[in-house]
């Protein structure tokens, strides 16, 4: 309860600061528009205002304050503008029966989400396989593991534009190139986490299995795999967030066709700031939902396995 109050207070402060920040950010644009519409502005002329402090401008032209929250293409849109845009491109579209129209964020979100999920599935599957190999083979452990760790320090995302273009030139298009980038980004966190997890049983437990004369397979399915579950879920949560970032970045070089990344790029080309912010919030909500979903699955699975808190 105490936490809830604190969180709500913090959120309220953030929104208040956001509204306040709109004033200095947007005042110059608002005054230029107002002057064109024939309102007297202190001081007159965009040139005089250019070098003035924004706070002073706000104080001198207090009549313009409501307008800074209602501009069409503000430098910083007010929270309610973003919320209205979000509703217009999601809920309102559903009510009109155009859920999957090209202007709907459900459409763009689905384009990004499908690539994310496909890539996440590929990356996680391969990651778990490699981790199993690393745990069971000393050679693989010694030769591959250092590279897996080093590769986490490399900005893999720099590869994204190239992967898209190369795959395009050999005729692979659509969802797959983005999914490959997503897979690549979620691959290494899963490998590293899963290796840690599969190794987490201590020697006492391994010895116990040996006294039961369990073979390698039984040891894997009955001890190592169950013991790795908490580690797996931690890395899955990191992996899915990375996958989403990969899918979004993968949409950038294809030239803004569809997807949340395309909305971001299109918005920045045409100065549609409200569109950028709403795409950003849609991506944030999507990421939060995915991580929360994994959290719920984690809790259920661990509880059924008797590891839940």
């Amino acid at each position: 309860m105490k936490t809830l109050v604190a969180v709500l207070t913090v959120l309220a402060v953030i929104i208040a600061l956001w509204y306040a920040a709109c004033l200095p950010m947007n005042i110059k644009g608002v005054l230029t528009e107002a002057e064109r519409a024939g309102v007297t502005v202190v001081p007159a002329g965009a040139k005089e205002r250019r070098d003035m402090g924004v706070i002073g401008l706000v104080l001198d032209n207090s009549f313009a304050i409501p307008a800074t929250w209602a501009q069409k293409r503000p430098r910083l849109p007010a929270p309610h503008q973003v919320a209205v845009e979000l509703w217009k491109t999601t809920g309102a579209m559903v009510l009109k029966g155009k859920t999957m129209s090209k202007r709907s964020l459900f459409f763009h979100g689905w384009v990004t989400l499908s690539a994310t999920l496909l890539g996440f599935a590929i990356g996680t599957g391969l990651g778990i396989l490699l981790a199993v190999g690393i745990v069971h083979s000393r050679v693989m452990d010694m030769s591959v593991m250092p590279w897996a760790i080093v590769s986490q320090t490399i900005p893999i995302i720099a590869l994204a534009p190239m992967i898209i273009v190369v795959l395009y030139s050999i005729g692979v298009q659509g969802i797959l190139p983005k999914a490959i980038i997503s897979a690549y980004l979620s691959f290494f966190p899963v490998v590293v986490g899963m290796v840690k997890g599969l190794r987490s049983p201590d020697s006492m437990q391994l010895d116990l299995l040996r006294t039961y004369s369990a073979n390698l397979n039984q040891g894997f399915w009955k001890l190592r795999l169950p013991a790795s579950m908490p580690y797996l879920f931690t890395s899955l949560k990191i992996g899915i967030a990375a996958s989403l970032v990969g899918a979004i970045v993968g949409e950038l070089p294809t030239g803004a066709v569809a997807g949340l990344g395309a909305r971001l790029l299109g918005g920045s080309y045409y100065g549609q700031t409200v569109q950028i912010w709403s795409a950003l919030f849609a991506a944030a909500i999507l990421a939060a939902c995915l991580v929360a979903l994994l959290g719920v699955i984690e809790r259920v699975v661990l509880k059924r396995m008797g590891m839940g808190a």
Binding site: T9, V10, I14, A241, I248, L264, S268, I276
Partner: peptide, 29 residues
Amino acid sequence: DFLRRGLLPVGNFVAALPIVGTAPILVMW
């Protein structure tokens, strides 16, 4: 204590978001 209770969940939430998406906005600013 109050700030920690309020900001930590928000910080944890934001840390998982695709923050690269703010790039076009910040480039504009």
